[in-house]
Design a protein around this nucleic acid. Structure first.
Lengths: 156, 156
DNA sequence: CGGTTAATGGATATATATATCCTTTAATCG
DNA sequence: CGATTAAAGGATATATATATCCATTAACCG
């Protein structure tokens, strides 16, 4: 699980959990504790994939374009670092033709299972599940006033 | 799926498919088309994990120590690049205590599913499955005589 | 023994992922 | 309009994964 994916998910979860207003890359980076410049790049990817919308200028920032309940982890992952399915023999063996050998057929089966695992979870689920710890709880917004409804304390 | 894992699996599959004798890192590298020196490093990891045994000197080389039918892909993966389970909050949030927040709880669930997917496939299965392409077929041993029973042709 | 073979271990080089920086473009506001 | 804000885009630096190289150790063989 790469750093990039972790950052992208943190940002998306944060946006989903604070939908009242748009958030600048700077504010998201401070809130979720990641490098500002790198997040900026990641937000570009998410924007390119249509998962978030960027607005320039004063009062600009990023907002989620999708309903968190309809947004799977897979879509976030694929926006920043697509799951690499195996479509041709990595050895370039002509003998296999369009078919993969059992090794790569099996590995691609595993990749498919990984895709399914990612697809089975939505951002909305993570925010709602009861009896569980709310995502990113304990993190607070710096540089602006706290927003009503935001998670500020510990919830078990 | 990293390069390292791909190489490790190729080497293990090759050894499993040619169990009559030991194979030097050089011969495995040539046969399965990967960098010799890097393979050498990977074989060290596999040896350290006890999946292969290295024998020095003349007629030395590597052999599988395990029955391919009892050897899962997960064990090979974990030998060279362990599946990273999430055991503590990557943000270091004390508030969570031993519990992960839903984001990381979910991500760790996915990692568990990935582990299971890897654990569900054995090296032996890949060599045996009928109606499928034999692993690494088309590759031949260079520098020594062909070995009886080895895959030399195309099998569909 | 000494010579040859090949794994083992560790140092070094290269490529890619991660992270930073700076310029340009677009939006708001007075 | 000009000033300010912030995203968009691209160039540069740093860290890690990938790959190479060399010295050492151990086994075989004559």
């Amino acid at each position: 699980m790469s750093n990039t994916v972790e950052y992208a998910l943190r940002a998306v979860v944060w946006l989903a959990d604070h939908p009242e207003e748009s958030h600048t890359s700077t504010s998201i980076a401070e809130a979720t504790q990641m490098p500002r410049s790198y997040l900026s790049k990641i937000l570009k990817s998410l924007s390119h994939a249509g998962l978030v919308a960027g607005q320039r200028g004063v009062h600009g920032g990023f907002t989620l374009t999708r309903n968190p309940d309809q947004l799977s982890i897979l879509e976030v992952v694929n926006a920043v670092e697509p799951v690499q399915r195996i479509r041709a023999c990595p050895l370039g063996l002509e003998a296999h033709g369009k078919n993969l050998c059992n090794l790569h057929r099996t590995l691609d089966d595993v990749m498919l299972e990984i895709e399914k695992a990612f697809a089975n979870h939505t951002i909305g689920q993570m925010l709602k599940s009861p009896n569980r710890v709310k995502p990113l709880c304990g993190l607070t917004v710096k540089g602006r006033k706290a927003i009503a409804g935001q998670s500020t304390g510990i919830r078990r």
